[in-house]
């Protein structure tokens, strides 16, 4: 039963994606229900479950590779959704910053090393992608063992770890660690 939990998580994720993609795409199995045109037909459900079973049996060794099931907790998913709001604000700032540099051409780049002290792969991935999308910074390389990130900074400043990652690390700790 060691594979069971990974299999079920993969199956549920695949089925959820399938149901989202076919939402409101055809006839419902319950004709009289309110909003029935939004629901799924019986054929769609059968097909979705069989495809999700095939996908889960082929790929259950990829998802949850470290056999750590902390992401099954729904609170983490909600925090992840809330995290998109500060991320979006930082992205808006980033774009005005890049717009300013496109127009004036003022740059002073450097590659700096930061040590965010995140332990999980998911956390490091989230942090690297968040850094790439926010003001003046771009992840160049990741040190896998130490989980240190090398960042290309378009206008170099002081204290890179705090200034680049400080805003995100406390958010990412909440859902990925």
């Amino acid at each position: 039963m060691k594979r069971g939990k990974a299999f079920i998580s993969t199956f549920l994720l695949a089925l959820f994606t399938y149901l989202l993609l076919t939402l409101a795409a055809g006839q419902s199995m319950v004709e009289e229900a309110p909003l029935s045109h939004l629901l799924w037909s019986l054929e769609e459900l059968v097909l979705g479950i069989s495809v999700a079973l095939i996908v889960a049996s082929l790929t259950d060794h990829i998802l949850c590779r470290k056999r750590n099931y902390r992401m099954l907790n729904p609170v983490r998913w909600i925090v992840m959704l809330v995290y998109t709001i500060p991320l979006f604000i930082e992205m808006a700032k980033a774009n005005f910053d890049v717009a300013y540099r496109v127009i004036t051409g003022k740059i002073e780049p450097a590659i700096v090393k930061i040590d965010p002290e995140l332990k999980t792969d998911l956390g490091v991935t989230f942090l690297a992608n968040s850094i790439t999308l926010t003001p003046g910074t771009l992840t160049v390389d990741v040190d896998d063992e130490e989980s240190e990130l090398y960042i290309h900074w378009i206008k170099v400043g002081t204290d890179p770890t705090e200034n680049i990652a400080g805003r995100f690390v406390k958010w990412i700790r909440r859902f990925a660690e």
């Binding site: 780049p109 450097a110 590659i111 700096v112 690297a128 771009l138 992840t139 090398y150």
Partner: peptide, 23 residues
């Protein structure tokens, strides 16, 4: 973008006007 930047650095392309390069 991260993959391209990493490949560029491994090829030996230096960041222009860079004041510091920890990597």
């Amino acid at each position: 973008a991260h993959a391209i930047a990493r490949a560029a650095h491994k090829m030996g392309i230096k960041p222009e006007k860079a004041v510091r390069d920890d990597l």
